[in-house]
Structure formats: structure tokens, C-alpha cells
Design a protein around this nucleic acid. Structure first.
Lengths: 202, 202
DNA sequence: GCTTTTGCTGACATTTGTGACATTTGTGAC
DNA sequence: GTCACAAATGTCACAAATGTCAGCAAAAGC
């Protein structure tokens, strides 16, 4: 039982070296250093020789900014879905469908939970039930769209409300609306269209 | 700066080992020892084997000197207070008092905002109005206390509710209760007692 | 008392930064 | 098309920093 402390192994790598990035991008690490020097890629330096270290989020930002393909290891961040629904049965149903399709999911049953999870779970997409007691779905829409760090989150409204309300939701920031009851395939297709995944019929 | 509450189970770390620093910096502890040997990082040695120990303030100084990112655990030494209140006037009043006393503040006007801010603003203390339409203050208390990453946040309940409700709040996780209307000094004293700051009468 | 974990040391392997220089790529003019 | 030119990228050798490993002993837990 020597060495190899779990703490040093960083399973989910969140700090990268220039060499790591060179391998991911299939370029020479010298090139990576030049990207850093020119400020294209955000990094910080270790004391000694000045070795560069890059946070994964900075790397992802860099990749997105330059339309580079994102390595699979980091794609998991793109498959996180937050389900906002106060009815446990409905939330569980949505969760089951999404989990089976390979998405990571979390359920929020009220506004406070939704808020904590949206910043800590960091989903790339949320499903939002508009008609929840004690929570104004439209306010959530508005807040997300006006918040710089959240505005890129895709939002699918799932609701039993009438068409005029759904139209309003779209105008206030929802990317898509699905009316209850819905088909499993509809949900998966909608998500796939927003995340850029391909939807495979089963 | 460190809270010394009698009920505080989690002893705040103010002395670090090389292993701790290695984990924080995502570096091998051998490297940390070399930083110490070269005098880049201030440390002292224990008698026996000569184990290195680093004071948190020295570590922070080291991080700042070298522009390294500071782990979140050490950011919480800041005086960040989240004010959860749906009445803009009341929230603004509390904010004014706290700002003048040197605290960083943010206001959440509903549960969703409170949730997003509690994980993104990362406050070390929150003031919570229990009686807010559309949000159950007790549910918020419960959620915070049951959540591993939030449970260390201090909570001051500010409410016009009767004593039995305030007692209930305390039993469900509130550190202190203040009944409306309150004196400015009461609020500041309460906060100071929870954060370990000293309260200076003006 | 015991066992397990953690930290130090020294030797060695690997990675990274730097500078100089070669090669490739993109662009616009002809 | 091709030519010249600039910019980006790759290559190389060297030095320095960092990582790895094994053995040992102290520290921590029980």
C-alpha cells in the first residue's frame, strides 16, 4: 500500500498540462505553449520553471471558441439534464427515459433545489414544468436567460398549459415546448435536436 | 478569521501538510517538498521525521504570489452574506447595514435565486426570511443542513413570526433567530458571533 | 499493544520550457 | 498555376522541473 494515494490520482481530471492538451488536440506541446503565450488559451504557471497548467473549463471554452472537436472524456458535461418538476411521478418518469438514453440526470422538486442544482450540477439542458405551486416557471426562464453564466443552458418546457402560454414561454426563452402528455420519442428527439446528439430510433 | 463556535464540529484547518497542498495544487507532494526546500513556500518542520507543516496564511500568500488559483475552501474566509428576502425594501435595508460593516452581499428575492446564489456566490452566512410567498423557509433550512457541501453555512433567520415558529426554526438548523423589527446592532452582533468576527460598537 | 496511513529520502524516469531553426500552411498578387 | 511572403506549426537539443518508485520510519487510529 505505498504511494498512489487516491487523492493524487485525480480521476476526473480537472487540471491539464500542455502535454495533455497537445495530445488531445493532436499538435505539438510547443504550439500549445504559444497559444497560451498569445492569450488564446487561459492558463496559470507553477512556481518553479513556470510549467503551465490549464483548468478543464478553460480548455473547453478554448475548444468551443475555436470550434474544435471536444474529446469524449469531456463530453459528459454535455449530457447533463436537470429535471425541474414538483410531481415525483412525472419527474421519475422523465428521469427513467433520459437515463436509459444515456443522460446524467438530477431532479429538482422546488425552486430552491432547482437553483442550487443549476449552478452545482451544471446541466447543459433542463426540462421545466411551468405550472408548479410556489414557483413561477416564467421567472425561472427569465432569470436563466438574463444570467451570463446560465444563458447557454437549453430549456425544454414540459407543460399541460394551453398554446398561448407555451408561445409565451418560447418568447421568454424556452428553446422548445412539449405539451403533456408526451411520447417518449418526442422528448428524446427534442433533446437530441438541442444538444446536437443523434437520435436513434429503437 | 476562523470561526470558533462551540457547536462547530468541523474543525477548520489552519495548518496543512505537504500532502494536503499536493492535492490542492494537483501536484505531487514531492514537488511541494521541493518548493519548500527552495524557500518558495514557507513551512516549518516537526521534530521527529521532519514533517513539514504550512500555515494556511503562508499557503495563501504562496498562491497569490504565483497567481495560482485559490481553492474554494479558502475563499470562504471572505465575509460573504446572502440575503434571502422577497421584500425589496427589507432586503435593501439589511444589505445597507451589512455593506457598511464590510460584508460582501447578494440579495435573493425568491427560492430559485436563493438556490443559484447559494452555490455560485458561495456565502459563509445567509439571512433568511421565513415567511415568503411561494417559498418554504423551513424546506430551505432542511435542504441546507442535509447537503454536505452547504451544511457549514451559518443561517440567521429574520422573521416576524411568533416564538414557537422561531424555536422550530432553531431546531431545524437555524443558528440564530432575530425577530422583526430588529436593531442594526443586533444584526451585526449576531453575525459577528457566528463568523467569529469582532463586533465594534460605533 | 497492534495495524494502517502518511511523509521523507534518494535514485531514477519522464515531462516541460526555451531558443534556434526547419517546415508547413494560408494569402494575395501576378 | 505559381510565386513570394508572412504566420503558424513542427523539430531538435539542452537544462530544469516534475513525477515515480521503493524502502523506511514516524504519525495516526484502533
Amino acid at each position: 500500500m505505498v504511494a498512489k494515494q487516491p487523492g493524487n490520482k485525480l480521476k476526473p481530471r480537472d487540471i491539464l498540462t500542455t502535454g495533455d492538451i497537445a495530445r488531445y488536440c493532436h499538435v505539438h506541446f510547443r504550439t500549445v505553449i504559444r497559444w497560451i503565450e498569445k492569450g488564446r488559451l487561459n492558463a496559470y504557471k507553477l512556481p518553479g520553471r513556470g510549467d503551465n497548467r490549464v483548468k478543464v473549463e478553460d480548455f473547453i471554452t478554448f475548444l468551443k471558441d475555436n470550434n474544435l472537436p471536444i474529446p469524449e472524456e469531456f463530453c459528459s458535461t454535455d449530457k447533463r439534464v436537470l429535471i425541474i418538476d414538483d410531481e415525483p411521478a412525472m419527474a421519475a418518469a422523465i428521469q427513467r427515459i433520459l437515463k436509459r438514453a444515456g443522460y446524467q440526470t438530477q431532479i429538482a422538486q422546488d425552486g430552491f433545489q432547482a437553483g442550487t442544482l443549476i449552478t452545482s450540477f451544471n446541466p447543459s439542458l433542463i426540462t421545466l414544468d411551468l405550472s408548479m405551486p410556489g414557483m413561477d416557471g416564467f421567472a425561472v426562464l427569465k432569470y436563466i436567460r438574463e444570467n451570463e453564466s446560465l444563458k447557454n443552458i437549453k430549456i425544454i418546457v414540459i407543460s399541460a398549459l394551453d398554446d398561448s402560454k407555451l408561445k409565451q414561454a418560447k418568447s421568454e426563452g424556452a428553446d422548445l415546448c412539449i405539451s403533456k402528455p408526451f411520447e417518449k420519442a418526442d422528448l428524446l428527439k427534442s433533446i437530441a435536436s438541442l444538444t446536437g446528439d443523434s437520435y436513434i430510433e429503437k
